[in-house]
């Protein structure tokens, strides 16, 4: 059987909120090392990769590898019934066709069990090679969210450029143009307000803002976001999940015809 008890249940709620509009159905791959998920969006342009390590759970048991086929809208409905401070336990039998979500209130005076039907999903996993990216930028996640939202009101695509000076976001549309530059900034008081740039080579790529906007629904998971870019490769937008792992989004760049 599989069982995972997560003291900070709100993390799972946030993960679902971040991906439920991008991906419809997906397998949660459970093994003794944790829970992993990889799924493409319906237009096959973006890829989501989630890792929740066993060590981040208060209790974790997985007797044999399970692929739990889940409709994310339905799981989101179930998790919305958990309080933000609740402890959430996931349970599934090896041969079962349901998953149980147990919610415990912080002072243990309310225990709720929600059972959700699983589905059979044929999933194709893509191999993501280890890449030495040309540029890696870490910046406040709320800042990235704001920039992407602001640019979306002006254009459909953004050019993201990284030089040793910083990262720039540019767009254009019927009403005009916009260009935002965030400079490397390591002198701020709080580490989470820093913008850092690691660069091997300047890089500039074009992306659809609609997807970048969707990725920023993960902002609540982490105060910082890491953007990794290389010429003619998908951008990686990574939100680290404290003590547990990460939620990564990959987006294919637009290419000149």
């Amino acid at each position: 059987m599989f069982e995972g008890r997560l003291l900070q249940g709100s993390l799972l709620k946030k993960v679902l909120e971040a991906i439920k509009d991008l991906v419809t159905d997906t397998n949660f791959d459970c093994s003794e090392t944790g829970i992993a998920l990889q799924a493409m969006d319906s237009s096959h342009v973006a890829l989501v990769s989630l890792l929740l390590k066993d060590t981040g759970f208060d209790h974790f048991r997985c007797d044999r590898n399970l692929a739990l086929g889940i409709n994310l809208q339905n799981m989101s409905k179930m998790l919305k019934c958990a309080g933000n401070d609740d402890i959430i336990t996931l349970k599934a039998e090896d041969e079962g066709d349901t998953i149980t979500f147990m919610f415990e209130s912080p002072n243990q005076d309310k225990i709720s069990d929600f059972e959700m039907k699983l589905m059979d999903i044929d999933s194709e996993h893509l191999g993501i090679p280890d890449t030495d990216y040309q540029a890696i930028v870490t910046m406040p996640s709320a800042e990235f969210q704001r920039i992407v939202r602001d640019l979306s009101s002006i254009g459909d695509t953004a050019v993201i450029g990284v030089t040793k000076e910083g990262i720039s976001f540019s767009t254009g549309g019927d009403i005009g143009k916009a260009n935002i530059v965030c400079r490397q900034n390591t002198n701020v008081d709080k580490e989470e307000d820093q913008t850092t740039v690691e660069i091997h080579e300047p890089v500039s790529l074009t992306f659809a803002l609609r997807y970048l906007n969707s990725f920023t629904k993960a902002t609540a998971l982490s105060p910082q976001v890491t953007l990794s870019l290389s010429k003619e490769l998908p951008i990686v937008v990574e939100y680290k999940i404290e003590k547990m792992g990460f939620l990564r989004f990959y987006l294919a760049p637009k290419i000149e015809e």
């Binding site: 096959h44 996993h125 893509l126 191999g127 695509t157 998908p234 990959y250 294919a252 000149e256």
Partner: peptide
């Protein structure tokens, strides 16, 4: 003109 390729163009199936 830009074209939006699929993600599978960059990452092969396992």
């Amino acid at each position: 003109k830009t074209h939006q390729p699929a993600i599978s163009r960059f990452f092969a199936p396992k």
